[in-house]
């Protein structure tokens, strides 16, 4: 199942970044597919991006809300919220584990053999701060003289944007290199910190600073597809604690907002079949020993 997940990550990465004409056009894809919402954090200023980033678009719409309202346009970000809300209701943070290109990059970096460390649980609240403050409040509240706010998260934090868009655009358009300043340096350092951190800890960005992960985490209890714990079968052996890339103690917290449904606990750890995948309450899969559509005996 881990191989299947890796292939899904690769395919999703290519679907969200499927425009490979940029070496010739030296700019980003500008076709109609960009009206489709990317399920994961994938910068739409990436030269290969074929979809829009929900966090980037939401900030842009909220930043321009006053200006839009003055012109009789009601752009509250409902279509963006609706798109990621539908995805959240269906999959929740399963998207982080299966469809986010930046999550996949972190997983690959974590394969570099070094001593590994955990991520303090307290830091996991950081992503909710970034979602509330940098994606919603600051773009809405701090506006310039023409009433337009900045996309604060993209502008000052997002390491995915620096890696997928900032650096490639500098390579494609050499004249942009003259405009590099403190803003880029700040974002470059943030990117380096998270990429280096990902070598030593599992998915540190997803756990501490991703606003899209924070949004999907809000659906942990109500998402359609999720893992289920059979308490009667669970022996509290804690094997699931050791394999979870997000530091979830599944037997203690089956609806944990950090769970990305990578299925490692179900397939690699639990020997008692206490963990299963369900859709809307109906069991779907038993551990990797075989997938079935029927419920377990």
């Amino acid at each position: 199942m881990e191989t299947v997940r890796k292939w899904v990550q690769v395919i999703m990465g290519f679907l969200m970044n499927g425009s490979w004409s940029f070496p010739f056009t030296r700019t980003i894809y500008q076709g109609p597919l960009k009206v489709i919402c990317a399920p994961g954090l994938n910068c739409y200023s990436c030269p290969a991006a074929t979809t829009y980033c929900p966090m980037g678009s939401l900030q842009q719409l909220l930043g321009g809300l006053r200006f839009a309202l003055e012109n009789g346009q009601y752009y509250f970000g409902f279509s963006v919220l609706g798109s990621i809300g539908i995805l959240g209701g269906l999959f929740g943070r399963m998207i982080c584990g299966w469809a986010c290109p930046f999550g996949f990059i972190q997983e690959l970096l974590h394969k570099i053999p070094t001593r590994k460390f955990g991520v303090p649980r307290l830091l996991s609240h950081g992503k909710f701060v970034f979602l509330f403050l940098f994606v919603i409040v600051l773009p809405l509240a701090l506006v310039d003289e023409s009433g337009i706010g900045s996309p604060w998260y993209c502008k000052f934090v997002c390491p995915a944007g620096t890696l997928e868009a900032g650096i490639p655009m500098l390579l494609l358009q050499p004249n942009l290199r003259n405009t590099i300043g403190l803003l880029f340096l700040n974002k470059f350092v943030i990117m380096l910190i998270f990429l280096t951190w990902a070598i030593f800890a599992s998915r540190p960005f997803c756990r501490t600073a991703c606003p899209l992960g924070a949004f999907y985490a809000l659906f942990s209890r109500v998402r359609l597809i999720k893992l289920r714990l059979d308490e009667a079968r669970c022996t509290n052996c804690k094997a699931c604690h050791h394999v979870c890339p997000m530091g979830v103690k599944f037997n203690e917290s089956p609806d944990d907002p950090e769970c990305i449904t990578c299925l490692a606990c179900m397939n690699k750890a639990c020997k008692f079949d206490a963990i299963s995948l369900e859709i809307g309450g109906i069991p779907l899969a038993v551990p990797d020993r075989g997938i079935s559509l029927s419920s377990k005996p």
Partner: peptide, 12 residues
């Protein structure tokens, strides 16, 4: 918005 490169958004 998505078909334009937002330079300040990507730190440039």
């Amino acid at each position: 918005q998505a078909v334009q490169v937002c330079l300040s958004c990507i730190g440039i």
